[in-house]
Design a binder for these strands. Structure first.
Lengths: 115, 115
DNA sequence: TTATCGATATGCGAAATATGCATAACGGTC
DNA sequence: GACCGTTATGCATATTTCGCATATCGATAA
């Protein structure tokens, strides 16, 4: 019994509904970086439709607006994260890191001396 | 921003392929308890087809046999876990518990006094 | 020796999801 | 007022999941 690795993931829920997981974290990060949903989708290699649907679904359950969107105008429009969303991403990033480290630590205790 | 909870999950991989996660952990536990795939599926409220497919998929990647199966004969047949599978389940159970606790702990540090 | 019975094993169509193409709407800028 | 690139969305297609139906198996009992 070797070559076994542990993986872990975390996500936030609100009233039992999924709010933010790894995939959507990446999407929001990409939006923050790119300044628009469209550019973010291109960067991630997914369709705009898919990105939009995921954001739509998220905002159904989020207790605050995720994005500030602007349609039309200079450049066609843009989207950026609200301050609360930025804070949420920051917390997610930190917790994911901590818990992933904890997983590796506990795993090494249970499966010692692999190869 | 309240009512937010953290959730976490772990799974084992072998050579990058999923080996054991929560759903399959429950399935194997049910098989161990019930003594057959069929009875386990009934207990879990899923179809035998689904249970069998999941086990089939698992055994594709597992480095050791998961089940000892017997077809036909007294009672029609039976299935039980190998000793290695029992050990794997035990480790999974322990690690899941530890990491879940760690998630709650770190979460409380980042999101204090949410009631 | 043969019929029985309940579990394993599996093909295949149906149902549920996910995906993405095509198109409308929008509104600063020139 | 025409243009441009983005947001927004309907809808058809592709992919995955699900489960019904059926074949196979073999110890036991008759």
């Amino acid at each position: 019994m070797s070559e076994i690795r542990i993986r872990s993931k975390i996500w936030f829920e609100i009233e039992g509904q999924p709010l933010l997981g790894e995939g959507r974290f990446r999407l929001l990060s990409a939006v923050e970086c790119a300044g628009s949903i469209n550019a973010a989708a291109k960067n991630l290699g997914i369709s705009y439709r898919k990105a939009w649907s995921q954001l739509e679904d998220m905002e159904q359950h989020a207790p605050f607006p995720l994005l500030e969107r602007r349609v039309g105008g200079k450049g066609g429009g843009e989207s950026q994260l609200t301050a609360e969303t930025q804070e949420l991403l920051k917390n997610f990033r930190l917790l994911r890191e901590q818990i992933n480290s904890a997983a590796d630590y506990y795993f090494a205790e249970v499966f010692p001396m692999e190869e």
